[in-house]
Design a protein around this nucleic acid. Structure first.
Lengths: 340, 340
DNA sequence: TTGAAAGCGCTAACAA
DNA sequence: TTGTTAGCGCTTTCAA
């Protein structure tokens, strides 16, 4: 039950009759230390059960080897794969990840940023909450030259790199596909238009319509939180429209699937009555019947790219100041949108 | 671009002509410090842009306020909700979470534990990898009195608390339900029997059979990694059995759903030809058709309970030495198992 | 190639 | 209620 006293470099130094400085150097890859001294030090360290004290080191070096991540929610397939990708890269490079959820609330996001600021993270990766309005809460970090990478739900900021897919193009692709299937009246199920991802997809939707000479009708755009509930509510709204739509482009798969479920319960045939396209390529899209046409969103890759970019900035402050990195997306066509 | 010099408590002390100790106390809720002094200190701290230095504090107090979590994978609905629950509680109590994935590999689990050990976590929560054999890699932590909580996939260890559901009972409930529906030949789709969760569910399955006087047939137990692929493979094996089963109890929803999909493609009618019960109450269970009967697994609650237990141990070393905490599960009956 | 020494910023025992 | 003081364990500059 007693706390054993920790072994320090002083203990090793004493045991070997060398100075602590030498031990400190020996423990690292310091140039200019004799090979045998180094070996001796490493051996004794292991024998004595020495454990490097990160805090003392951090305090001294003013560096923490910790990277923060703030995301709206952890519990989506997409986000899990993003985090998995980040964790992999970051750990390979000797960093730790600390993760915080904003729960889609701007306030919690600010609190999370502050906590991370206080725990002196070396860098930060963020996907913004539903209602975040500005970047003020990031300024303190930036003022200290702590690099920030935005991913997925980004905001323009000079000096920050963003990692995204081309949401405009993806929105266009999805809508265009529905139009090509003969849809004339397409509902778009969207999220907060404060967020680039949703605003851009909407813009793509509009462009596709315009190219086909279809007038944009704002009443066909339903904005909500894109949850299960959101999808169900959208279905109810759709069922009550006096002129029934013949296509739906939803900005995520969760809401698309929930919406389809409700529509099917109401006797709507998918895709023939209404064709549906989702977004994210969530595993759920392969379970719903008919299988959901969707946009593949490379989560793992996005996490890896964001982390790699951050690590790069951390290692060489002179790194190219990339503004935006765009990953490839892909429309995956399944039965939910294929009218015969 | 220049690194501003950090504001320290000394700067504040100087500005106010008090001692650093007083400032340190004023910044906290130290009893026995005058209200106005405290206010003065807080005000000046804010004005000067003071930022608490966690490392100096950690170094001094020998405490990190960081809790580690090691899980097999982050990207399942269940695990996301667990982590969400942990994160909530832990943050509310001023701790940070660092997360690492073992990717189901015992080796990576060991590496993760070591990293966490080196970063001097105050406590650890673990759900074991697929092939972890023993607890040796945890001993170093335990020797230092760093508390460990096992959750979900646990291993017996004196001095560690475990948080689980009653997997035996849940396995029994699921199987019993199938039997009550008239099933006579029930396949059990299971994971690694090294892991309690799967071994216990299997035991429950056996008990239910026995009570009905059905002889246990090991050929009806299919063990694999319970992934999408695993479920599909299981379906193929089932289709090739010379005597077709009339029920399936799968140890997770992912594999149950994948299996159902394949069976349906082969023309099997669910539930009438084969009734299916899954495990976890993953959202996917409400999407597959027919909707999947499953066991509700309280992920968020499990995360919160594990975190609460850990925090409790951290706060008072004299805390009751609970060995196991069992959460309530619940069989959710849907169409996939209801024979007419 | 190694050592001496100072200090990173904070906390807490003890003293006043 | 506040101050003095001595480190926590490590890194690094400068000197040898």
């Amino acid at each position: 039950m007693t706390h054993h006293k920790e072994v320090t470099i002083y203990d090793i130094a004493e045991a070997l009759s060398v100075s602590p400085a030498t031990v400190s150097r020996g423990l690292k890859d310091h140039p200019g230390i004799r090979k045998d001294t180094k070996k001796k030090i490493l051996d004794t360290a292991k024998k004595m059960g020495y454990q490097h004290n990160t805090f003392a080191s951090n305090l001294r070096r003013k560096k923490t080897n910790t990277i923060g991540v703030i995301v709206p929610r952890l519990n989506s397939y997409f986000m899990s794969t993003v985090i998995a990708g980040m964790e992999k890269l970051v750990n390979e490079n000797g960093y730790n990840l600390i993760i915080s959820q904003s729960q889609e609330s701007g306030k919690k996001e600010i609190a999370g940023v502050n906590t991370m600021y206080n725990s002196r993270i070396d860098g930060l990766m963020v996907s913004l909450a539903y209602d975040t309005k500005d970047t003020e809460h990031f300024e303190a970090l930036l003022k200290k030259n702590i690099p920030i990478i935005f991913f997925d739900r980004i905001i323009e900021h000079p000096g920050c790199t963003s990692v995204v897919i081309d949401n405009h193009q993806a929105g266009y692709d999805a809508t265009r596909h529905l139009l090509d299937q003969g849809c004339k009246r397409i509902v778009h199920l969207s999220g907060s238009l404060n967020r680039n991802v949703y605003a851009d997809r909407l813009a793509g939707y509009k462009q596709a319509l315009q190219e086909k000479g279809i007038v944009y009708n704002p009443e066909l755009v339903i904005s909500n939180n894109l949850s299960d509930m959101g999808g169900e509510e959208a279905a109810h709204q759709i069922l009550q429209m006096h002129k029934r739509p013949d296509g739906i482009f939803a900005a995520n798969d969760t809401s698309a699937v929930a919406c389809m479920r409700e529509l099917k319960l109401a006797g709507i045939k998918i895709p023939n009555d209404i064709a549906v396209v989702g977004f994210n390529n969530d595993p759920i899209s392969k379970v719903i019947e008919p299988n959901l046409t969707t946009v593949n969103y490379p989560g793992q890759e996005m996490g890896e790219v964001a982390a790699a970019t951050l690590l790069n900035k951390l290692n060489k402050s002179n790194s190219a100041n990339l503004n935006t990195i765009v990953l490839r997306h892909e429309l995956i066509i399944r039965q939910s949108s294929l009218k015969k």
